[in-house]
Amino acid sequence: MPRLSAWFIRTAMAYLALGITFGALLLWNKGLPLHPGIWRLLPVHIELMLVGWTLQLIYGIAFWILPRWRSSRGNETPVWVAFWLLNGGIWLVALSQSLGWDPIWLAAGRLAEIASAAAFAINAWPRTKALGA
């Protein structure tokens, strides 16, 4: 497995650990109330599970298994950019939603996530090709 995929997949697992902990607290709190403030974790739980875990894992697996460009996986720089933009975006979205920051930070986080998808596509697009092409 290439180094970049290992980074994506291990980071995804770290978010899974955090995301399920928040999810477990939310569900436990629904049955046996712990603290009303726990509900503020809901948007963070959703962000960590959908973007931090699922999307990041998909990036890592896709970079690993998509057909190679001749003998290599192409230029890795845009994929590293996608990694940092995605993770910066996740933290901006999660913190701004849970701590009630100015909505500009939420927008900045979402923009970083959108930019990460575009950066990832720069590498993935030409590797999505017919057998032998």
Binding site: R10, M13, L16, A17, I20, T21, G23, A24, L25, L26, L27, W28, K30, G31, L32
Partner: peptide, 23 residues
């Protein structure tokens, strides 16, 4: 109510065992 709490605990443990298995 205890069912929901137990469900939370079981799913949390599932996440941890997955990470321990896959990492």
């Amino acid at each position: 109510q205890w069912g929901l709490a137990l469900s939370a605990l079981l799913q949390w443990l599932a996440g941890l065992t997955l990470i321990a298995a896959a990492w």
